[in-house]
Design a binder for these strands. Structure first.
Lengths: 194, 194
DNA sequence: GTGTTCATGTAAACTGTTACATGATTCC
DNA sequence: GGAATCATGTAACAGTTTACATGAACAC
């Protein structure tokens, strides 16, 4: 049930269309959550059916139409409730670790390629999250600016620092994955040499 | 499609019933994958339909019946193929980080409780994975022993070290989560004091 | 006029969770 | 005899991915 709360989180900053949400999820400035448009549009409709958002149809150009969603008071209550409530901690399910546990079945070259792809993937994301942390700290993120505009000044620091904190968690995880995969490359080389 | 490969991985060590698989997934000695029995039994049937495993019905006691699955040559080929093939790297979707990004909406006590639960959760798992690494290194894990029995001696080191490597990845991630949550506790205290 | 972006959907397939259900065996 | 464990299933539901689809607006 996190998609609906990710949507409420975005809509708590400013009204948006489904396409806007999709762009935010998809942007290189990214996020800790994402979803394809095929999941976003129906979920926004369901949020409206539940009264957590309301929408207005607006026109673009001659015949173009789009639907903009606003969070409602009930939506704000629900979001606050969710933030306060503990999330169940799930057991890990990690296909990459599962596979690495059986690398003795792989060609060394195949294992190496997979570990290199792992490193490249997390280096890219670590960089993007670091850029986002910098942009948040400098208050250069448009959505953050909208959010600060309708929050009292004494809350601004908390708003920024919790977002930075969240992305620093992502960066730490990315670095742990990179360190792990580098050790894996050394291990493949060592075992190949035998 | 990792569940079927997790099942093939287990069955490559020794024949098992669905219940055995469920116990392995569920044991405190744990795993990097898990599934409820309601997912395991149908998947084993599907693996049999695909020819990747074969099964025999065996009796237990007077009227009791159970079905034991053996991996087939086609199953070994499929597993080897999967280990060699790169896994698509997925974008992260982290509900805990999502929520932490909005902790300014939470009561400090609620945020603190959630971070403490996060730490307790990963400390527990880090301990279990560390115990498993020790047990693997000492060759005290029964399933590993079965695996080593029908592998040539020169492969034993690789078999053990790749498994240790996989669990060390889980331990690194757990430690990154613990460090992150501790920083969060400091941040909550700092912002609360303002 | 053509390609890119904006904008929104349905439907099927797949994966995972939760609820409901049954019965045998084993240990005390 | 009763509780815990062994053993296996169905069904409904929730969440996610992928395929298929459509059309307007805008920039070149």
């Amino acid at each position: 049930m996190s998609l609906r709360h990710a949507l409420l989180a975005l809509l708590s900053a400013q009204p948006m269309t489904g396409y806007d949400v999709y762009r935010y999820f998809d942007s290189s400035l990214s996020y800790v959550w994402h979803a394809p448009h095929t999941q976003i549009y129906p979920e926004l409709r369901r949020l409206e059916d539940s009264g957590l958002v309301r929408s207005e149809e607006i026109s673009r150009g001659e015949r173009g139409r789009k639907r903009r969603y606003h969070i409602s008071a009930a939506g704000l209550d629900e979001f606050r409730r969710w933030v306060n409530e503990p999330l169940p901690l799930q057991r890990e399910r990690d296909a990459h670790k599962l596979k690495a546990a059986y690398f003795e079945w792989a060609e060394p070259a195949a294992a190496r390629r997979q570990l290199q792809a792992h490193i490249a993937h997390y280096e890219l994301w670590a960089q993007q999250w670091e850029d986002l942390v910098d942009a948040l700290t400098a208050r250069e993120v448009p959505l953050l600016q909208r959010r600060l505009e309708h929050a009292p000044a004494e809350q601004h620091e908390a708003i920024i620092r919790y977002k930075v904190f969240a992305y620093e968690g992502m960066i730490r995880r990315a670095k742990a994955e990179i360190d792990w995969a580098r050790i894996g490359l050394d291990l493949v080389a060592e075992l190949e040499g035998q």
